[in-house]
Computed example of a mutant assay.
Amino acid sequence: MPAEGNGVVAIATSTGKPVAPIVSKVIHFSGYDWRVRNAASDRGGQPNSYDPSNVWTDKNGYLHLRMEEHDGVWTCAEVSLTRSLGYGSYIFVVQDIGHFGPSAALGLYTNDDFRPDDIRNELDIELSRWGIADNKNAQYVVQPFYIPENVSRFMAPSGVLTHMLRWESGRASFKTVRGSVIGPGTATVSEHIFTSGVPTPAKETAHMGLYSYRHSQSPTKQPVEVVIEKFEFLP
């Protein structure tokens, strides 16, 4: 510190207070390590808080994501892979989401969290009614979503569903089937192929996030939980 005089009028010091370190939680699921989100996010149209305790695996190895109130604050859940996979097939086996209220949203997507906002590289499978009770409850998206041809909406029925994104150069193919396997004889719920605006791989990672869409406008009254049985990647 400089001494008083020569333009320095006064000197004051203050002792800083230590803060708790931010501990990064990593969870193992389906043979991969996933980083558990603990920072707020504006995904869903307004800031949502995230609590690592809302994420866990059970004795079957299934992943649980939960939204609930903690100490008066509505908290969400999200995990992201600790490494990038690039082109290939991303497969998610999800248990019944029929209990979702209008504002609940499950995002299964690839995204680079550190890319500039003006460079959109996100591919989404999203399960939500976006605050409208009689809306279709699922969609495939090549961001940005506000371009009509970048979105394909459909109704996801009750029961276990398998959602797949096949990401190739200039092509993103989405498919949803009933049950936990994609193969001959499985009943297709929806499928769509995008060939415009498909991003190229960079440092994106797979994400699975359960959050609330504009929670203050259409609040979820009860805790919401979703179970993801399996994640699989095929080059």
Rank of each mutant, 00 (worst) to 15 (best):
residue 40 A to N: 05
residue 75 T to D: 07
residue 76 C to F: 00
residue 189 V to R: 05
residue 20 A to S: 15
residue 214 R to L: 15
residue 54 N to M: 03
residue 6 N to L: 05
residue 125 I to T: 12
residue 72 G to Y: 14
residue 226 V to M: 09
residue 14 S to H: 12
residue 158 S to P: 08
residue 229 E to R: 11
residue 61 G to I: 10
residue 148 P to L: 06
residue 111 N to I: 03
residue 138 A to Y: 01
residue 110 T to K: 03
residue 24 S to V: 13
residue 52 P to I: 10
residue 3 A to I: 10
residue 220 T to M: 15
residue 25 K to G: 04
residue 62 Y to C: 06
residue 225 E to P: 02
residue 149 E to V: 01
residue 13 T to Y: 08
residue 201 P to H: 03
residue 161 L to G: 08
residue 36 V to S: 08
residue 120 R to W: 11
residue 45 G to R: 07
residue 42 D to A: 07
residue 124 D to K: 09
residue 191 E to S: 15
residue 37 R to W: 09
residue 180 S to W: 04
residue 221 K to P: 05
residue 72 G to T: 08
residue 160 V to T: 13
residue 149 E to M: 01
residue 198 V to L: 05
residue 226 V to L: 11
residue 24 S to P: 01
residue 215 H to Q: 15
residue 21 P to H: 07
residue 196 S to D: 11
residue 116 P to I: 06
residue 206 A to T: 10
residue 232 E to V: 11
residue 12 A to P: 01
residue 225 E to V: 01
residue 199 P to E: 04
residue 112 D to C: 01
residue 196 S to F: 06
residue 94 V to W: 03
residue 131 G to R: 05
residue 139 Q to W: 02
residue 132 I to K: 15
residue 108 L to I: 03
residue 176 T to E: 01
residue 122 E to V: 08
residue 121 N to R: 11
residue 44 G to S: 07
residue 107 G to K: 09
residue 82 T to K: 09
residue 128 S to Q: 11
residue 17 K to H: 02
residue 28 H to W: 04
residue 92 F to Q: 04
residue 99 H to G: 12
residue 60 N to D: 15
residue 175 K to G: 09
residue 229 E to L: 14
residue 156 A to C: 11
residue 106 L to K: 07
